Amino acid sequence: MAIWQWALLALGLVWLMQSIGVWFQMRHYADVFKGITGRFQDGYVGAGHARGRLRKGTIALLVVSPDLVVQRLLLMTGRSVFTKFRREREVEGMTLAEFRAGRNPDAADSEEKAIALAIEQVDKIRSKAAAPGINQEFAAA
């Protein structure tokens, strides 16, 4: 076999391993998300992500109760498909306003960007739930 054929075979194997790793990571994300939505059935869940070019990327899952208290914050930061979520216990019990005040959404840190997107998603979900007529529309269906 010529060297370019070995290189092509190696490239194919690396691509296959990456695809399998991404599949496992997506399964882990789906399992964690199902666990959160199953455990915290009331309130709001926001997810945010920030990709890093040369730095680590981050995914944030934020759970807020109906009375706007942070119930759970999970962060997954890393470059590898083996990265797992870690629970940030120090923010649990804070109000959403307190939590938001302690954040800098303009920071270059990928964790801050992901958390800012998760907060933004919670705000969007809250505004849709508070919109007049939306609950009646679903009740009629």
Results as ranks from 00 to 15, higher is better:
M1A: 12
M1K: 12
A2Q: 15
I3G: 11
Q5Y: 10
Q5S: 05
Q5A: 06
Q5M: 09
Q5K: 13
A7G: 07
A7E: 08
L8D: 08
L9I: 12
L9K: 12
L9A: 11
A10R: 04
L11W: 06
L11S: 10
G12F: 03
V14S: 12
V14N: 10
W15R: 13
L16D: 04
L16S: 13
M17F: 09
M17G: 09
S19P: 00
I20T: 09
W23H: 15
Q25L: 15
M26G: 07
Y29F: 15
Y29P: 01
Y29C: 09
A30D: 01
V32D: 02
F33L: 02
F33H: 01
G35R: 00
G35I: 03
T37A: 02
D42C: 08
D42P: 01
V45R: 03
V45F: 04
V45Y: 04
G48C: 00
G52I: 05
G52D: 03
G52L: 05
L54S: 12
K56T: 08
G57L: 07
T58H: 03
T58K: 00
A60M: 02
L62W: 03
L62M: 06
L62A: 02
V63M: 01
V64K: 05
S65V: 01
S65D: 04
D67S: 10
V69M: 09
V70M: 00
V70A: 06
Q71D: 10
Q71A: 07
R72H: 06
L74E: 10
L75Q: 11
L75W: 12
L75I: 15
M76Y: 02
T77P: 01
T77K: 13
T77R: 15
R79M: 04
S80D: 13
T83L: 04
K84C: 11
K84S: 13
K84W: 14
F85H: 06
F85I: 11
F85L: 06
R86G: 06
E88V: 12
R89F: 13
E92Q: 08
M94F: 07
M94C: 08
M94E: 11
T95G: 08
A97P: 00
E98N: 09
F99D: 05
R103H: 14
R103L: 15
R103Y: 10
N104T: 13
N104I: 12
N104W: 11
P105Y: 10
P105F: 10
D106M: 14
D106T: 15
A108W: 15
A108M: 14
A108Q: 15
A108R: 15
D109H: 07
S110I: 01
S110A: 10
K113A: 00
K113P: 03
K113V: 02
I115A: 03
A118M: 02
A118S: 01
I119D: 06
I119Q: 02
E120T: 13
Q121V: 05
D123W: 01
D123N: 11
K124P: 04
I125N: 00
I125T: 03
K128V: 06
A129L: 05
A129E: 11
A130P: 07
A130Q: 08
A130V: 04
A130F: 05
A130C: 03
A131W: 06
G133R: 08
G133V: 12
G133I: 11
Q136P: 02
Q136F: 12
F138I: 12
F138L: 12
A139D: 13
A140Q: 15
A141K: 14
